[in-house]
Design a protein around this nucleic acid. Structure first.
Lengths: 269, 269
DNA sequence: AAGTAAATGTCGACG
DNA sequence: CGTCGACGTTTACTT
């Protein structure tokens, strides 16, 4: 079981700084609730006036700064940042620096409401269902869900440039390129498919078909497809979901989609 | 100054549930650190085994669930969710339900390390600089940053489908379509520009030029541009940034970019 | 409400 | 390390 390493309520800034330094050196998962200002410079640039923020520093040194409202963090730094704490002109300063791209996030706190760190946190095993990769695999194993007589001959194959989600040969022997979207497909999905089909046609596959597979389509996507001689076909999430039920679920190890049949590295850090 | 309304360390689950209910009814900003499992069902579906998570419920009822690693939350619910807490089979259950789309997030906690709420939090004033909109406006006001003799005749104009970032007439009287990216432009940006140019050409603008403006370009973007007779030009973020310094800053009111020219905020210091 | 594009997008995979 | 595409993307903006 994880243990709380500290829970300082309204500590003097010096105490907070010292505790924070200790927690950071020990690579703890840290939460700081305080009155701070934030400055960020990197790909973009931002600054904020003083306000109440919740700062989360995780074990992998990702930093997230939340305000009292809104889903998105006000500021952040992705994992791998160099995080340091210090006192500076009487204020607690927390800096998170990332290289490549070079980005700096600086928090300057005039007051700490709560500071706490957790040791030995257990990462929950996370299962995500019906990722695009899984949908693609299910369709590849059950091509009749798409059309009769279809044979899948390739999956996630590189074209220049990009990747075709799925290749097939239809009952008349024509090459079919599939682009799969797990949600409603917009114009950009259609553009992508068009691009692949054009590439293939320019390489002599005159009879290639292009099919956009999605549970739904925007009007402009359909217009673009029809104007370009491409097809679209609705896939039924329910049918896919039922197929998925018979497979093992997809496990999100560090990120999002790790799908079956491609044994990959556990690697962390 | 904001005040901590509670800071319960390792409370019994019943106490935590009671306190949590109170904090939620009072619409406080709440933090719960505990050993929980999470189940989500909605557009996607996910579940997790037990693990240590940090749950943040904000004043606007957005809910964010973070694990010990990674920038992205494991689960979340955007603002406006209906959040309730209760005891259920000896465990603390926190439910956040959103309608349209109907989505449910359920947290089931077997242990609470820390529970706390903050009252009277002050939202920091947030300023974001150099959004794409601002870059576009600066370029539109200073077309010589792009090329000599260029005259900008339109900005953010609808084409079917989509929007052209910027139109100009070059020194030879040709129509120029600009696509602007504030970061390195990839293939999809090139595809977007190509689409616009093709649309315009098909409408009789035979001599239209297409120019992708970005601080940098991926190799495949350049390939696609050159193969399609389109151009690309590097824009210097530094030069833009200096121009921006002379303008009033961009204020992020509720979301990300609210740019000038539309009755806006006082400048920053 | 639906569609479209931006984002400090982040994240993972692959060359 | 660059390039690429997915994402419960979220968010803002326009029709």
């Amino acid at each position: 079981m994880a243990t709380l390493r500290r829970a300082l309520v309204e500590p003097p800034l010096e105490d907070a700084a010292r505790a924070l330094q200790g927690l950071l050196t020990a690579h703890r998962w840290v939460v700081l609730w305080g009155r701070c200002r934030a400055d960020y410079e990197g790909r973009g640039a931002s600054s904020s006036g003083e306000g109440d923020v919740l700062v989360v520093v995780k074990e992998d040194r990702s930093v997230i700064v939340h305000g009292p409202r809104g889903f998105r963090p006000l500021n952040w730094q992705p994992s791998g940042a160099a995080v340091t704490a210090s006192m500076r002109e009487g204020l607690l300063e927390l800096r998170a620096v990332r290289k490549s791209p070079r980005e700096t996030l600086t928090l300057t706190c005039s007051r700490v409401y709560l500071l706490s760190g957790l040791e030995g946190a257990v990462e929950p095993e996370f299962h995500m269902y019906l990722s695009e990769a899984e949908i693609r695999d299910i369709l590849a194993s059950n091509p009749s869900l798409i059309e009769e007589g279809l044979r899948i001959v390739g999956v996630e194959r590189p074209v220049d440039p990009g990747f075709v989600d799925m290749y097939g040969i239809d009952r008349e022997g024509r090459l079919v390129v599939f682009e799969i979207k797990r949600v409603k497909a917009g114009e950009s999905a259609a553009r992508q498919l068009l691009r692949y089909v054009e590439t293939l046609r320019s390489r002599g596959h005159a009879r290639v078909r292009g099919v956009l597979l999605a549970p739904d389509f925007t009007e402009s996507a359909i217009r673009l497809l029809e104007a370009s001689g491409l097809e679209h076909a609705r896939i039924d999430p329910r049918a896919i979901y039922e197929m998925a039920g018979r497979r093992r679920s997809v496990k999100r190890v560090r990120g999002l989609t790790e799908y079956l049949g491609k044994g990959s590295a556990p690697g962390r850090g």
